[in-house]
Amino acid sequence: MYKRIIWDVMVNVLYISSLTYVLFQQAFIGRIGFVSFINAAIFSVMSALYGYTIGDLKRAIIGYLSSVVSAIIVTTLLVRYPIEVNVGNLAAELVTMYSLRNVLMYVIFILTPLSIIFMSVGIYLSQR
């Protein structure tokens, strides 16, 4: 039981780190371009592997949603912190708004649809 919980936590933490990397790239780009799609394609492979590793739709969806929320928070903090320390609070607020908008648009319109499809494929393959 504990072993499974530890394994699930580890898998989700690694998934959050991958998602944070993709969102960190996107946070600075105001538009969805070619690089965004390349990142989304790479992350889709990660989602398929995540689905295969978890092997259960309910756990995978809950894990995915919690990972998305955590990754958005971590990305925003990562983008914000150096600006807040080196530049100032006002600049940090502006950067937070800008990066959060970019990240949310990307997650809602690109990443989530692709991830759910590929995660389901991964889960299906794990059940065969």
Partner: peptide
Amino acid sequence: YLILSLSFLLLL
């Protein structure tokens, strides 16, 4: 999965 996600972590 572990290798890929650790690579992403390093890149991040």
